[in-house]
Design a protein around this nucleic acid. Structure first.
Lengths: 126, 126
DNA sequence: TCATTAATTTAGGATTTCATCATATAACAA
DNA sequence: TTGTTATATGATGAAATCCTAAATTAATGA
């Protein structure tokens, strides 16, 4: 049987599911390594992430299930690559967003140091 | 105290954490509603998502904690908006990726119907 | 060909963690 | 006080992670 995504689930569920597939540091690390090089062997991913083989393999399986990566066996080794360029885009946008968040939070922090009155609270609760 | 993100966590952990904040259908729904209109009141978000107020409020709190949205009280109502344009970008890229996944999976499905030999397996395992 | 070694994946299980959702209560503005 | 939104609490269940061990697959050499 060919593994098909949920064609009938509402799009926002599918989308949430996609993000669930990305929601682990090891998997992010793997995707970043794959975004740098067009192909990476499992051995190199083990080295790059510092994970045990079986642990990494399960994360790779998650990534495969979400259609984020493709695997190809060549001899003894299996090589992984990103399944679509949009996967790398996702990481790029995420980094850009986090940079913004960090710098503006940094700024707010400096501001609140300069004007030490309780201007902002725990999570900018209104 | 101003709520500051984890400045010292490795970036891939922060990134994974960001995706964790996005990994729920209700929150995706909320962000999509906010991407459509520059401002939405909680009442409208309740209507738009079909969630109970307290439930939605907790999801909003998650989104705030991740710095994805901003809240502003105006009289009785609280209005939410996206904290950064990159949040909308993230959704856009996600949709683009999912579209690709669905169409290529669709194609593979048709292919496997036309050539009914076991060409591909459960998750394109090598 | 058979046995051996290497690389990767799967099975099964224990643990933890996390997440969600409802009820009830609080805070806040008009 | 009334209406609107937020938090606390707690129960529940789900599920994600990570380990050990075993299985699969491919290359190599006797």
């Amino acid at each position: 049987m060919v593994d098909q995504p949920d064609f009938h689930a509402p799009l926002y569920e599918v989308k949430a599911n996609l993000f669930k597939g990305l929601a682990h540091p090891v998997r992010i690390r793997v995707l970043e390594l794959l975004a740098e090089s067009p192909q990476v062997s499992v051995a190199d991913l083990i080295a790059g992430t510092g994970q045990e083989a079986s642990n990494l393999s399960q994360h790779l399986s998650v990534l495969r299930r979400h259609h984020l990566v493709l695997a190809e066996r060549r001899g003894l080794q299996v090589f992984y690559r990103l399944a679509y360029p949009q996967v790398a885009d996702l990481l790029t946008v995420a980094r850009s967003l986090l940079t913004e968040v960090l710098t503006t939070t940094q700024k707010n922090l400096e501001l609140s140091m300069a004007l030490p009155n309780g201007s902002a609270s725990a999570e900018d609760r209104p």
